[in-house]
Each structure stands twice: as structure tokens, then as C-alpha cells.
Design a binder for these strands. Sequence first.
DNA 1: AAAACATTTCAATTATAATTGAAATATTTT
DNA 2: AAAATATTTCAATTATAATTGAAATGTTTT
Lengths: 140, 140
Amino acid sequence: MSRQVSHPPTIHKDIGDLSIPAEIAESLCSCGGIEGLIRGIPPDEVFEEMQSWYQACADPVRLKILSLLVVRPLCVCVLKAVMKMADSKLSYHLNILKRAGMIEGKQQGQYIIYRITPKAQRFMEKELEQYESEKIRDGY
Amino acid sequence: MSRQVSHPPTIHKDIGDLSIPAEIAESLCSCGGIEGLIRGIPPDEVFEEMQSWYQACADPVRLKILSLLVVRPLCVCVLKAVMKMADSKLSYHLNILKRAGMIEGKQQGQYIIYRITPKAQRFMEKELEQYESEKIRDGY
DNA sequence: AAAACATTTCAATTATAATTGAAATATTTT
DNA sequence: AAAATATTTCAATTATAATTGAAATGTTTT
């Protein structure tokens, strides 16, 4: 598409059987090479655990439910009235939040009242706050 | 399964055409009913925006990449060596992080060096810190 | 105990995301 | 300019998640 501009050749180093740009080589050596990088990050289980949390957050319906429950516990019937969706759909999303440890439901007579867990409460407050501050910064 | 225990009947109130438990009715009235709840939460676009961020985080491969880039920029070839996966797979995940605004790549000669964006940096530091503190609390 | 209500579960479908290997692009080296 | 290297793109497949409507469950009211 655009005219080709030839870059100055990148100086690179060989570490083991790996050739890398000099810029990276420096910081890589100072941390123990590839092995050092691997040692420096959490074990895979941590990422698995994190992903299941974010997975649960990765849906606008569920985020909306959480933001409602941040303020006060609510029964399914009220959530349904706010969310305007089929029972089974709502129930599906509630179940995902529950399995992720973000909400808990307790039966109260014929109703079930859901409340957000302390961990999810902390998380949502932090996150919503950030989105609020972005809103202000961007002038909405 | 377990023996049925009959609950005391739940006192409930009718608000509009909605019947809800007394416990909820109180807090619901004080905030302006269903309409008040709806008014109290951010507009849908906020949840859409949040979901795309968490969606990008909702994968262990991508979280691992981010946690590597939190410490220092890296070229694809080093990431490949650490992640031990096919080029095309790695590239796919890098692209998702890029589209979500979590990383940026700049070509440096024949290499491409990826760095985490300031917003993602802040996010990951906060999140990893929390997982660290959980690790300590749980005694691992 | 039958009817009504709140909620969940299930099975079928539809939609979205991830993986794979091959081909394409860009850059550098020879 | 041909060969080599780094990385991306593409098309096909596979896997996972979301939606839907009907049926089931548990609770309360009549």
C-alpha cells in the first residue's frame, strides 16, 4: 500500500537458539533470560482462576445485574422487572455469577433474594468508580 | 432430598403489578422503585465497554501475556519462547489484546515489540496485587 | 389439594470464540 | 534478487457460550 521505507537494520543478539532485538536482549539478560521471565510470573493456576472471574464479568447483562446488587440485595422478580428479559435467561446469568462466587441467593418464602459477595462488591466498586472517572474526564 | 421444612409465609407488598418481599420493598421504595433502580445505574454503553475489556481478560493465555508485559516490553519471538505455542495462536491472542486497547506493537526491524498500555498496566498491577494477597492469606 | 406464583432446569438451537495448518507479508541477510 | 526469519492473515474446524421455550420444582394461597 504505502511506499516502502527501509529501516536501519536492527541490531540483535543470539541467546541460546533465539535471536532477539538488542533493546529486548538487555532487559532479558538482567532478569535471567527466558527462564527468568517464566519464574517471574505467577503459576498457571492463578491465571485460570483470574480468567474464570473475568469470564463471569464478560457480559453486559451480568455487569448490569452486579451494578444493581452493589447497592442493595434484590429478588429475582425485581431483577426481572429491571432487566426486562425472560426468566430462564435471567436465571442462566444469575447462575453464572453464583458459580463464579460473585453473588449468593437465599430463599425467602417463594422468593429468592440475591446479594453480591464481599469480594465482588469490592471489585465492582473499584471498577465502576474507574468508569465514572473516565466519563468525567471524557466530558460526557 | 432433605425433609421439607415449611417456612413462615413471607410478607410481601404489591408495587404496581409487581409483588415483592417486604424486605426488598422497603429499600426499593426509598430509591424510587423499579424506575429509581434503572436511573441509578450507568447507561448500557458503559456495560458494553466494560464487557469488552473483561472479555479480553477472560483467557489464561492473554492474562499470562499481560503479566509478562507488565514488567517489560517483549518481542513476539520471546513471547513465543515463553508461551510455547504456535505462531498463529499467539498472534491471534495478541490481536485481541491490541483491539481491546491493552497492548501496542511497534515494528522494530524484522521484529515486533509489544508493550502494555498505561491503562492495562494500572489494571493488571491492581489485579495481580490482589491475587498475591489472596495467595498469602490462603497460606500458599 | 388444587391453583397460582417465583424460579430453575432441561434440551434444542444459534451465535461466538479458539485452534490449526497453510499461505501471505514484511524485513533482513546473503 | 533469492533465501531466511519474524509475524500476521486466512479459511476450515472444533469448542464454548448464549438464547429460547417448555417442563419441572418449590412455595404460598385458596
